[in-house]
Design a protein around this nucleic acid. Structure first.
Lengths: 149, 149
DNA sequence: CTAAATGCAAATCTTTTGCACAACC
DNA sequence: GGTTGTGCAAAAGATTTGCATTTAG
């Protein structure tokens, strides 16, 4: 947990629970557990993967519940949804508002690395100039990682 | 590496058929028709939408066939697949190799507009610096269009 | 003629919905 | 206690697969 890869987000369960409550959600076993799993997972993770991580523990949660939790989390901006083109949605904890990052996905092993750069101001202005409001964006890179070459 | 083209190249059925043959595919009624529909459609279009456009004409094609055609076209780089977050894959004709464009999607009406700007050279270099080869990217903007505001 | 493509049916996979029961505040 | 969340079953939607039949080259 020192140098390699992602600097772990300075997000703790307490602040997450607070954000949950502020979003008008009850704090339940299952929701806390999903948060814990998301917090511990360095890459975007799918509903089914979360479901399986639940399974390995003693107390489980229904896959349906996980879908519902993730949808709620998305509404409250606790997580963001990613789609990398394989028909499965993946989720990751949303960083502080206004901060976001992008991804580099290996076309071979599907591994995802975060990319903490982004300066698309001019592009965003262009889109706003086209008449759009509340402009957000998605930027992902695909390549073959060093391990897979 | 991949530069974003600004001018759309003329694409005609003949060159598309040639690209099909070069990809080792037979030129069939259904495939030609799918190409025609893609050529006539300004936005990324789903398999089902293509299927329905077939229907309105006299000769139809099975939805399954359309999926298979699109998959084949994707392998041969005749089309590119897009996913905008609603669980449906959409396809559009691939422009000349190395040229591509991006999209602006209205969060309300789901309409898609092409965006012919892109200067991500520095970002691409960064990713290559991380050890990735054959780096490509995807950039889409989301907003609320003027009509929907 | 022969490999490749198509159509039909049915399967698979992801995600959603309805409803009764349980849990949180 | 009353709303909100969960589990189970089942549905819905997108995409894929198996197999017999047709078609392009």
């Amino acid at each position: 947990m020192s140098k390699c890869g992602t600097e772990r987000k300075n997000i703790d369960m307490d602040s997450l629970h607070t954000r949950m409550r502020n979003g008008g959600m009850k704090v339940t076993q299952q929701r806390s557990q999903v948060l814990k799993i998301l917090l511990a997972h360095p890459e975007p993770i799918s509903a089914d993967e979360i479901f399986k991580k639940f399974d390995s523990k003693s107390e489980g949660a229904d896959l349906v519940t996980i879908y519902r939790i993730l949808k709620k989390f998305e509404e409250v901006l606790l997580v963001t949804r990613q789609e990398f083109g394989d028909g499965v949605a993946r989720f990751e904890l949303a960083l502080e508002s206004g901060h976001h990052h992008h991804h580099v996905i290996c076309r071979h092993c599907q591994r995802v690395e975060p990319l903490h750069i982004c300066d698309l101001e001019s592009h965003i202005k262009t889109v706003e100039g086209m008449g759009y409001k509340q402009v957000s964006h998605r930027l992902d890179f695909f390549g073959v990682c060093s391990r897979c070459q």
